[in-house]
Simulated assay, not measured.
Amino acid sequence: MLDRPRTYNVLNILMKFHAFPSETMDKFCFVECLVPVGAGAPPNHHAGETESFYIIDGQIGFMVDGKEILAGPGDHVAIPDGAVHAFQAVGDKPARLLIINAPGHMHDKFFTGIGHPLPEGQTELPEPSEPDIPSVLSLAEKVGMTFVAPAEAPA
């Protein structure tokens, strides 16, 4: 076990790292998330890392390369390397999901870099807070992640 925090508040999402890449022979990062309704990740893409989501409870709305997907318990959504994607918890309760990032170094650095460590064993959602958007964008650029502005709706 590493001597570093495993539980973080990342953009108001409770993230518990079950495995860091350094613990999986640099093959993947394995994270469990509790996502409040309305929270998630804005449209982004990253070359060199695939991402896989497995929904345990609740519902998540995904956008993958322009295609909308509504996923619920037992559903798996794979994000191809480099695909523009976003997700958001929807419905009337928080969503629980598992995320595997492979090889995971980018997501490890990003999530733990923008996240705030929480007490180990915390299972309740953290107090919501406003993210420091310039810091989020700066770290994303450093690790190779790009956020994409949503297309403007026609007038």
Rank of each mutant, 00 (worst) to 15 (best):
P117G: 03
S52H: 11
V84M: 08
F62I: 07
G113Y: 01
H107W: 10
A140N: 08
L139K: 06
A153T: 10
L11M: 15
T123P: 04
P80K: 12
F147E: 11
A151D: 12
V90W: 10
T123Y: 01
G48C: 13
H116W: 05
D132P: 07
A155M: 10
A95Y: 02
G66C: 11
F110H: 01
T146G: 06
A95M: 01
A89H: 04
L11P: 05
M15N: 13
I133R: 12
Q122R: 10
A71C: 11
I13F: 04
A140L: 08
D108Y: 02
P126D: 01
A71Q: 07
K142Y: 03
E152P: 03
T112Y: 02
G66L: 05
D132T: 05
E120M: 03
H18A: 08
A71D: 08
M63C: 10
G91F: 07
N9D: 15
F30G: 01
N101I: 04
S135P: 04
I55N: 09
K142P: 03
T50D: 12
A155V: 09
P117H: 03
V84K: 14
E51W: 06
S135I: 02
G48F: 11
F87S: 07
P134Y: 10
L125H: 02
F17E: 00
G115M: 03
G58R: 00
T146H: 13
H116T: 15
S129P: 03
H105N: 14
P36T: 07
E120L: 03
Q88C: 14
T112E: 02
D75L: 10
P150A: 07
L139E: 01
F111R: 00
A149K: 15
E32S: 10
P119L: 07
M15P: 03
K93D: 07
C29I: 00
A102M: 11
L34R: 14
I133G: 09
P43G: 09
I100S: 14
M1C: 08
L98R: 08
S22W: 04
P117N: 02
G82A: 15
L97T: 09
G58T: 04
P42Y: 08
M1E: 08
T112D: 02
D81I: 07
Y54D: 07
L2I: 10
I99F: 10
I69P: 06
F62C: 06
A83V: 09
E141R: 15
D57F: 06
H76K: 07
M145D: 05
F147M: 05
A155D: 06
G48Q: 06
M25R: 14
D132F: 09
L14T: 01
P117C: 02
A153R: 13
A149C: 07
A86G: 07
A83E: 04
I79N: 13
N12Q: 12
E124Q: 13
H46K: 12
